[in-house]
Design a protein around this nucleic acid. Structure first.
Length: 471
RNA sequence: GGCCUGGUGGCGGAGUGGUGACGCAGCGGACUGCAAAUCCGCGCACCCGAGUUCGAUUCUCGGCCAGGCCUCCA
């Protein structure tokens, strides 16, 4: 099985063939850092992180170059900075740090590059100049605009017709635009806003040019995969594509376009006006493990909409608990011994990889994760150490590939308890063990009730009691 | 108005032209001093109508419903 990717441009699944297998490149649009991101922003991060992991397996870790940008110049950033009376860098650095911390908590690997827009203004201006020189852009009234009429293929990615767009235009058309669809490459800064010198007058870049310039600066054209949310298809990616192609008089920009579907909230789009904004920041702070969020985000195919609910989180937690339960029992049996996974073996691990290679079918991959869990459970139940080692190695390998199951099982179940709590629990368990040994079940049950009140569930086993924190 | 998705069991969610993935929850049983964990068993989903077919949840057409994009947006 070779990797198949659904390409938004082709509107079908295509076999993935990189330009150069020794240098596979991927770019994903990252956040604008003016506040905490919401959970919807986390979906592309987790989805493309999973793809990143898969590509590294297929082509080798050193061969995959992944860039995810930080947009650190923007109206909303200016507004946030003005509101606090600070430089924009205070805002952007603060929320970039939060972003990196939260995405790491979701199990996302650090991308190869995380370019910031403000560090690439020079490249943006070079690209703008190239566009002007080639007749694809024009300066007007302090602005530089992309001339959509001078690019025949405009609209191809999003399947739009320029005439239709003009006819259905709902925005007020700025007087300096030749065509309503023309978009800003460079614009004058308002007083107090960050400003850069340019051949077209002092100002700042438009949004779309940031990404095309950073892609060229950091990865080089053409890139293999360009990813982002479905909402970015138009106008953002359509415009990026137009710039990237026209700045060079043709050629390829991105070979595969991938777009993840939206998160719904009870059937509604998340927005501030609806007051239904959910943020990883809050979810993580409330004690929900990042892995639970990641499982939830990967529980539907990435192109499908996903309804984000309490129930989804609960089910994700329960499912992970089950897997960690087997891993905990397995660890007790093999006592620290480990085995290398047999990555090329036939069977569930192969099916797991095949599911991911089929356009990142994560629900299908989770099915195989369950099968691996069942296999491990049988081996543990049979007390078969060699089989337990093998099943566990494969389950952990699959888990790593999808960014899950990397926590120590004991920590998974007891992690929510502090040190003081652990000491107290162990003391109570010792007391309870003594009571049980002397058949004083009344005392044993009283201690169980006491532990229950502390949020601890006790599980008696053949080798002694284990425990876990209730949710 | 234009363009585009999707409608699967109590819930989440894959997939397939021909014996109901997988997970969660639930029910019955086993085990257990009691529990938990685990094991065994239990579900007769595929929006509606027409068509194609020996056979459709899966293909085609129509309808209904939901959602997205067309404006900043993951």
């Amino acid at each position: 099985m070779t990797l198949q990717i659904y390409d938004t441009m082709a509107r079908e699944k295509r076999p993935f063939v990189p330009t150069d297998p020794s240098r596979v490149t991927m770019y994903v649009c990252g956040p604008t850092v003016y506040n905490h991101v919401h959970i919807g922003n986390a979906r592309p991060v987790v989805v493309f992180d999973t793809l990143f992991r898969l590509l590294r397996l297929l082509y080798g870790e050193a061969a995959v170059i992944y860039a995810r940008n930080i947009t650190d110049v923007d109206d909303k950033i200016n507004a946030a900075a003005a509101a606090e009376g600070v430089e924009i860098s205070v805002i952007t650095q603060r929320f970039t740090a939060y972003y990196e911390e939260q995405m790491a908590a979701l199990g996302a690997l650090t991308p190869t590059f995380q370019p910031r827009a403000t560090a690439h203004i020079a490249e943006m201006l070079l690209q703008i100049t190239a566009l002007v020189d080639r007749g694809h852009a024009y300066a007007a009234d302090g602005h530089v605009l992309f001339d959509t009429a001078a690019y025949a293929a405009y609209g191809k990615l999003s399947g739009r017709d320029l005439d239709d767009m003009i006819a259905g235009a709902r925005v007020e058309v700025a007087p300096y635009k030749k065509n309503p669809a023309d978009f800003v490459l460079w614009k004058p800064s308002k007083p107090g806003e960050p400003v850069w010198e340019s051949p077209y007058g002092p100002g700042r870049p438009g949004w779309h040019i940031e990404c095309s310039a950073m892609i060229e600066a950091v990865l080089g054209l053409p890139i293999d995969i360009h990813g982002g949310g479905i909402d970015l298809v138009f106008p953002h990616h359509e415009n990026e594509l137009a710039q990237g192609v026209c700045a060079h008089g043709g050629g390829e920009y991105a070979r595969y376009w991938m777009h993840n579907g939206f998160l719904d909230f009870s059937g509604e789009k998340m927005s501030k006006s609806l007051g239904n904004v959910v943020r990883p920041h809050d979810l993580l702070d409330s004690g929900i493990p990042g892995e639970v969020l990641r499982w939830a985000l990967l529980s539907a195919h990435y192109r499908q909409p996903l309804d984000w609910t309490e129930s989804l989180l609960r089910q994700s937690k329960e499912t992970l608990d089950g897997l960690y339960q087997v891993l905990r029992d397995a660890a007790a049996l093999v006592d620290g011994e480990t085995l290398a996974p047999d990555a090329d073996a036939e069977g569930h691990l192969a099916h797991f990889k095949a599911a991911l290679e089929d356009d990142l079918n994560t629900p299908g991959a989770m099915r195989e994760l369950s099968a691996l869990g069942r296999g491990l459970r049988s081996a543990v139940a049979a007390g078969n150490r060699p089989a337990t080692l093998e099943w566990r190695a494969n389950l952990l390998f699959a888990g790593e590939l999808i960014g899950l199951l990397q926590t120590e099982p004991v920590a998974w179940f007891e992690g929510a308890a502090g040190e003081e709590m652990k000491v107290r629990v162990e003391a109570l368990l010792a007391e309870r063990l003594a009571a049980r040994n002397s058949k004083d079940f009344a005392t044993a049950d009283r201690i169980r009730a006491e532990l229950d009140a502390l949020g601890v569930v006790v599980m008696d086993g053949p080798t002694g009691a284990t425990w876990r924190m209730k949710d």
